[in-house]
Amino acid sequence: MTPRLPWPLAYTVSGDDCAAPMPLGYAAPLAEAVRHLAEFGYDGVEVQVRETGARDAEALTRTVEAAGLRVLGIGTGPVAAQDQLTLTDPSPDVRRHALFRLLGAARLAGELGVPVTLGQTRGTFLPGLADMQRGWAERAVEQLAEEASAHGSRLLLEPQSRANTSLWHTPDETRAVIESLGAPAGLVLDTHHLDAEGVDTMRAIADHAAVTGCLQLAAPVTRGPLTVGDPRLPSLLKALHAGGFTGWLTLEHTQDGDSPRAAARSWTALTDAAAVLA
Protein backbone atom coordinates (compact mmCIF):
# COMPACT_ATOMS: atom_id res chain seq x y z
CA MET A 1 0.00 0.00 0.00
CA THR A 2 1.17 3.51 -0.75
CA PRO A 3 3.21 4.92 2.16
CA ARG A 4 1.21 7.01 4.63
CA LEU A 5 -2.10 6.51 2.84
CA PRO A 6 -4.50 4.22 4.73
CA TRP A 7 -6.42 3.37 1.53
CA PRO A 8 -5.32 1.74 -1.74
CA LEU A 9 -4.49 4.25 -4.46
CA ALA A 10 -5.58 3.48 -8.02
CA TYR A 11 -5.37 5.10 -11.43
CA THR A 12 -7.96 4.87 -14.19
CA VAL A 13 -6.93 2.66 -17.11
CA SER A 14 -8.68 1.37 -20.22
CA GLY A 15 -9.27 -2.32 -20.82
CA ASP A 16 -7.91 -3.87 -23.99
CA ASP A 17 -11.48 -4.06 -25.33
CA CYS A 18 -11.82 -0.27 -25.49
CA ALA A 19 -11.88 1.33 -28.93
CA ALA A 20 -9.40 3.96 -27.68
CA PRO A 21 -7.95 4.96 -24.31
CA MET A 22 -10.49 6.76 -22.14
CA PRO A 23 -9.61 10.47 -21.96
CA LEU A 24 -9.70 10.48 -18.15
CA GLY A 25 -7.34 7.52 -17.84
CA TYR A 26 -3.79 6.50 -18.65
CA ALA A 27 -3.26 6.84 -22.41
CA ALA A 28 -1.48 3.56 -23.13
CA PRO A 29 -2.32 -0.11 -23.66
CA LEU A 30 -3.17 -1.85 -20.41
CA ALA A 31 0.08 -3.80 -20.02
CA GLU A 32 2.17 -0.66 -20.55
CA ALA A 33 -0.04 1.45 -18.30
CA VAL A 34 0.13 -0.90 -15.32
CA ARG A 35 3.88 -1.26 -15.64
CA HIS A 36 4.35 2.50 -15.49
CA LEU A 37 1.86 2.95 -12.66
CA ALA A 38 3.61 0.32 -10.56
CA GLU A 39 6.87 2.20 -11.02
CA PHE A 40 5.23 5.40 -9.75
CA GLY A 41 3.98 3.68 -6.60
CA TYR A 42 0.29 3.05 -7.26
CA ASP A 43 -1.40 0.10 -5.56
CA GLY A 44 -3.86 -0.80 -8.28
CA VAL A 45 -6.07 0.24 -11.16
CA GLU A 46 -9.71 0.91 -11.87
CA VAL A 47 -10.29 -0.73 -15.25
CA GLN A 48 -12.79 0.81 -17.65
CA VAL A 49 -14.32 -1.90 -19.85
CA ARG A 50 -16.47 -1.83 -22.97
CA GLU A 51 -17.47 -5.45 -23.54
CA THR A 52 -15.13 -7.54 -21.41
CA GLY A 53 -16.91 -10.28 -19.45
CA ALA A 54 -16.22 -12.95 -16.85
CA ARG A 55 -14.41 -15.14 -19.40
CA ASP A 56 -11.68 -12.47 -19.55
CA ALA A 57 -11.04 -12.26 -15.81
CA GLU A 58 -8.00 -14.54 -15.81
CA ALA A 59 -6.24 -12.67 -18.62
CA LEU A 60 -6.99 -9.29 -17.03
CA THR A 61 -5.71 -10.45 -13.65
CA ARG A 62 -2.55 -11.86 -15.22
CA THR A 63 -1.78 -8.58 -17.00
CA VAL A 64 -2.32 -6.40 -13.94
CA GLU A 65 -0.66 -8.68 -11.40
CA ALA A 66 2.39 -9.13 -13.63
CA ALA A 67 3.15 -5.49 -12.84
CA GLY A 68 2.63 -6.02 -9.12
CA LEU A 69 -0.71 -4.20 -9.05
CA ARG A 70 -4.28 -5.35 -8.47
CA VAL A 71 -7.65 -4.53 -9.96
CA LEU A 72 -9.62 -2.49 -7.43
CA GLY A 73 -12.77 -1.82 -9.45
CA ILE A 74 -14.43 -2.26 -12.84
CA GLY A 75 -15.80 0.85 -14.55
CA THR A 76 -18.38 0.89 -17.33
CA GLY A 77 -17.95 4.34 -18.89
CA PRO A 78 -16.96 3.10 -22.38
CA VAL A 79 -20.34 1.37 -22.81
CA ALA A 80 -21.88 4.81 -23.28
CA ALA A 81 -18.83 6.90 -24.20
CA GLN A 82 -17.62 4.67 -27.02
CA ASP A 83 -20.73 2.76 -28.13
CA GLN A 84 -23.53 5.20 -27.18
CA LEU A 85 -25.41 2.49 -25.31
CA THR A 86 -27.52 3.69 -22.38
CA LEU A 87 -30.26 2.39 -20.11
CA THR A 88 -32.63 5.21 -21.13
CA ASP A 89 -32.33 5.10 -24.90
CA PRO A 90 -35.75 5.18 -26.62
CA SER A 91 -34.80 2.04 -28.56
CA PRO A 92 -35.55 -1.21 -26.67
CA ASP A 93 -32.72 -2.93 -28.54
CA VAL A 94 -30.21 -0.31 -27.43
CA ARG A 95 -31.38 -0.56 -23.82
CA ARG A 96 -31.14 -4.35 -23.90
CA HIS A 97 -27.65 -4.17 -25.39
CA ALA A 98 -26.56 -1.64 -22.77
CA LEU A 99 -27.85 -3.82 -19.93
CA PHE A 100 -26.26 -6.91 -21.48
CA ARG A 101 -22.87 -5.15 -21.46
CA LEU A 102 -23.33 -3.95 -17.87
CA LEU A 103 -24.35 -7.39 -16.63
CA GLY A 104 -21.22 -8.79 -18.26
CA ALA A 105 -19.11 -6.20 -16.44
CA ALA A 106 -20.80 -7.15 -13.17
CA ARG A 107 -19.95 -10.80 -13.72
CA LEU A 108 -16.37 -9.86 -14.54
CA ALA A 109 -16.18 -7.83 -11.33
CA GLY A 110 -17.53 -10.80 -9.43
CA GLU A 111 -14.83 -13.08 -10.84
CA LEU A 112 -12.26 -10.54 -9.68
CA GLY A 113 -13.91 -9.98 -6.29
CA VAL A 114 -14.23 -6.20 -6.79
CA PRO A 115 -17.11 -3.70 -7.19
CA VAL A 116 -18.57 -2.57 -10.53
CA THR A 117 -19.40 1.11 -11.04
CA LEU A 118 -22.14 2.84 -13.03
CA GLY A 119 -22.09 6.46 -14.18
CA GLN A 120 -23.05 7.99 -17.52
CA THR A 121 -24.41 4.76 -19.04
CA ARG A 122 -27.71 5.46 -17.32
CA GLY A 123 -28.28 8.13 -20.01
CA THR A 124 -30.25 11.34 -20.56
CA PHE A 125 -33.92 12.21 -20.87
CA LEU A 126 -35.75 13.36 -23.99
CA PRO A 127 -38.66 15.82 -23.91
CA GLY A 128 -41.86 14.12 -22.86
CA LEU A 129 -40.20 10.80 -22.01
CA ALA A 130 -38.63 11.54 -18.64
CA ASP A 131 -41.02 9.49 -16.49
CA MET A 132 -40.80 6.49 -18.77
CA GLN A 133 -37.02 6.73 -19.06
CA ARG A 134 -36.63 7.00 -15.30
CA GLY A 135 -38.59 3.78 -14.90
CA TRP A 136 -36.39 2.00 -17.43
CA ALA A 137 -33.25 3.10 -15.59
CA GLU A 138 -34.57 2.17 -12.16
CA ARG A 139 -35.54 -1.33 -13.25
CA ALA A 140 -32.20 -1.87 -15.01
CA VAL A 141 -30.18 -0.65 -12.03
CA GLU A 142 -32.14 -2.98 -9.74
CA GLN A 143 -31.29 -5.89 -12.08
CA LEU A 144 -27.64 -4.83 -12.27
CA ALA A 145 -27.33 -4.63 -8.48
CA GLU A 146 -28.85 -8.11 -8.13
CA GLU A 147 -26.54 -9.55 -10.79
CA ALA A 148 -23.48 -8.04 -9.13
CA SER A 149 -24.48 -9.39 -5.74
CA ALA A 150 -25.23 -12.85 -7.11
CA HIS A 151 -21.73 -13.06 -8.57
CA GLY A 152 -19.83 -11.80 -5.53
CA SER A 153 -19.56 -8.17 -6.59
CA ARG A 154 -21.32 -4.97 -5.50
CA LEU A 155 -22.74 -2.12 -7.54
CA LEU A 156 -21.36 1.36 -6.84
CA LEU A 157 -23.56 4.11 -8.27
CA GLU A 158 -21.91 7.44 -9.08
CA PRO A 159 -23.65 10.82 -8.72
CA GLN A 160 -22.78 12.68 -11.92
CA SER A 161 -23.43 16.19 -13.17
CA ARG A 162 -26.38 16.97 -15.42
CA ALA A 163 -23.89 17.46 -18.27
CA ASN A 164 -23.46 13.66 -18.25
CA THR A 165 -26.85 12.26 -17.25
CA SER A 166 -30.40 13.23 -16.34
CA LEU A 167 -30.46 10.94 -13.32
CA TRP A 168 -29.14 11.18 -9.76
CA HIS A 169 -26.85 14.20 -9.65
CA THR A 170 -26.17 14.51 -5.92
CA PRO A 171 -25.00 12.08 -3.25
CA ASP A 172 -28.32 12.44 -1.41
CA GLU A 173 -30.33 11.53 -4.53
CA THR A 174 -28.06 8.63 -5.36
CA ARG A 175 -28.02 7.27 -1.82
CA ALA A 176 -31.81 7.20 -1.84
CA VAL A 177 -31.60 4.99 -4.94
CA ILE A 178 -29.10 2.53 -3.48
CA GLU A 179 -31.10 2.27 -0.26
CA SER A 180 -34.17 1.32 -2.30
CA LEU A 181 -32.42 -1.59 -4.00
CA GLY A 182 -32.92 -5.17 -2.97
CA ALA A 183 -29.18 -5.93 -3.14
CA PRO A 184 -26.15 -4.38 -1.44
CA ALA A 185 -24.85 -1.27 -3.21
CA GLY A 186 -22.75 1.79 -2.49
CA LEU A 187 -21.59 5.13 -3.88
CA VAL A 188 -18.72 6.42 -5.96
CA LEU A 189 -18.00 10.07 -5.17
CA ASP A 190 -16.13 12.14 -7.77
CA THR A 191 -14.75 15.55 -6.83
CA HIS A 192 -15.32 16.90 -10.36
CA HIS A 193 -19.01 16.00 -10.42
CA LEU A 194 -19.54 17.25 -6.86
CA ASP A 195 -18.00 20.60 -7.82
CA ALA A 196 -20.07 20.78 -11.01
CA GLU A 197 -23.29 20.30 -9.03
CA GLY A 198 -22.30 22.77 -6.32
CA VAL A 199 -22.05 20.05 -3.68
CA ASP A 200 -19.56 20.68 -0.88
CA THR A 201 -17.07 17.81 -1.07
CA MET A 202 -16.24 17.81 2.64
CA ARG A 203 -19.90 17.70 3.57
CA ALA A 204 -20.56 14.90 1.09
CA ILE A 205 -17.73 12.85 2.57
CA ALA A 206 -18.87 13.51 6.12
CA ASP A 207 -22.42 12.44 5.28
CA HIS A 208 -21.70 9.48 3.01
CA ALA A 209 -18.21 8.08 3.74
CA ALA A 210 -19.66 4.94 5.32
CA VAL A 211 -21.45 3.91 2.10
CA THR A 212 -18.81 5.16 -0.34
CA GLY A 213 -16.68 2.50 -1.99
CA CYS A 214 -14.49 4.80 -4.06
CA LEU A 215 -13.50 8.47 -4.21
CA GLN A 216 -12.37 9.72 -7.62
CA LEU A 217 -10.02 12.70 -7.63
CA ALA A 218 -9.12 15.48 -10.04
CA ALA A 219 -7.93 19.06 -9.75
CA PRO A 220 -10.74 21.60 -9.32
CA VAL A 221 -11.87 23.62 -12.36
CA THR A 222 -9.47 22.00 -14.87
CA ARG A 223 -10.22 18.35 -14.02
CA GLY A 224 -6.52 17.77 -14.59
CA PRO A 225 -3.81 16.12 -12.47
CA LEU A 226 -3.56 17.04 -8.80
CA THR A 227 -1.21 19.80 -7.72
CA VAL A 228 1.31 19.61 -4.90
CA GLY A 229 0.29 22.04 -2.18
CA ASP A 230 -3.42 22.07 -3.05
CA PRO A 231 -4.89 23.05 0.35
CA ARG A 232 -8.01 21.02 -0.32
CA LEU A 233 -6.22 17.67 -0.30
CA PRO A 234 -5.18 17.43 3.38
CA SER A 235 -8.68 18.47 4.46
CA LEU A 236 -10.21 15.90 2.16
CA LEU A 237 -8.03 13.11 3.52
CA LYS A 238 -8.82 14.08 7.10
CA ALA A 239 -12.55 14.05 6.28
CA LEU A 240 -12.26 10.55 4.80
CA HIS A 241 -10.41 9.31 7.87
CA ALA A 242 -12.87 10.89 10.28
CA GLY A 243 -15.82 9.48 8.33
CA GLY A 244 -14.55 5.91 8.51
CA PHE A 245 -13.99 5.55 4.77
CA THR A 246 -12.86 2.01 3.90
CA GLY A 247 -12.78 2.10 0.10
CA TRP A 248 -10.11 3.09 -2.39
CA LEU A 249 -8.98 6.32 -4.09
CA THR A 250 -8.84 6.64 -7.86
CA LEU A 251 -7.15 9.32 -9.93
CA GLU A 252 -9.59 10.05 -12.77
CA HIS A 253 -8.62 13.16 -14.68
CA THR A 254 -7.35 14.51 -17.99
CA GLN A 255 -3.79 13.57 -18.90
CA ASP A 256 -2.55 16.95 -20.21
CA GLY A 257 -1.05 15.10 -23.17
CA ASP A 258 1.44 13.22 -21.00
CA SER A 259 0.14 10.33 -18.90
CA PRO A 260 3.46 9.47 -17.21
CA ARG A 261 3.87 13.03 -16.00
CA ALA A 262 0.20 13.33 -15.01
CA ALA A 263 0.28 10.11 -13.00
CA ALA A 264 3.52 11.02 -11.25
CA ARG A 265 2.24 14.51 -10.44
CA SER A 266 -1.00 13.25 -8.91
CA TRP A 267 0.76 10.55 -6.91
CA THR A 268 3.20 13.10 -5.48
CA ALA A 269 0.45 15.59 -4.63
CA LEU A 270 -1.69 13.04 -2.85
CA THR A 271 1.06 11.29 -0.93
CA ASP A 272 2.48 14.65 0.10
CA ALA A 273 -0.94 15.68 1.44
CA ALA A 274 -1.17 12.38 3.31
CA ALA A 275 1.41 13.65 5.81
CA VAL A 276 -1.55 15.22 7.61
CA LEU A 277 -2.64 11.73 8.66
CA ALA A 278 0.67 10.85 10.31
Rank of each mutant, 00 (worst) to 15 (best):
E46N: 03
C18K: 00
P29T: 00
Y26I: 05
T12H: 00
R35V: 14
A20I: 03
T12I: 03
L37R: 07
V47L: 10
Y11C: 04
V13A: 10
E32F: 09
P3A: 11
R50N: 11
W7L: 14
Q48G: 09
A59V: 12
G41P: 02
L37V: 12
Y26V: 08
T12C: 03
E65N: 02
L60R: 04
R50A: 11
A59M: 11
T63G: 02
P3V: 11
D16C: 07
V13Y: 12
T61F: 09
V64P: 09
C18M: 06
A33Q: 01
A59N: 10
A27W: 10
A19L: 15
M22P: 01
E46L: 12
A28Q: 04
W7E: 13
P21Q: 03
G53Q: 09
G41V: 06
A19T: 05
P23W: 12
W7P: 10
G25D: 06
Y26F: 15
V64R: 01
A38T: 06
R62L: 12
A31W: 12
S14R: 02
V47M: 09
A27F: 06
G25I: 07
V64M: 10
T63H: 02
A59P: 08
R4E: 14
T52H: 08
P21L: 07
E51A: 15
T52F: 12
G15C: 06
M22I: 05
P21E: 03
A20N: 00
V34K: 00
P29C: 01
A57P: 09
L9W: 05
T52L: 14
V13C: 13
V64A: 07
G25K: 04
H36L: 11
R35E: 14
G15V: 05
L9F: 13
E58R: 07
E65F: 08
A57I: 10
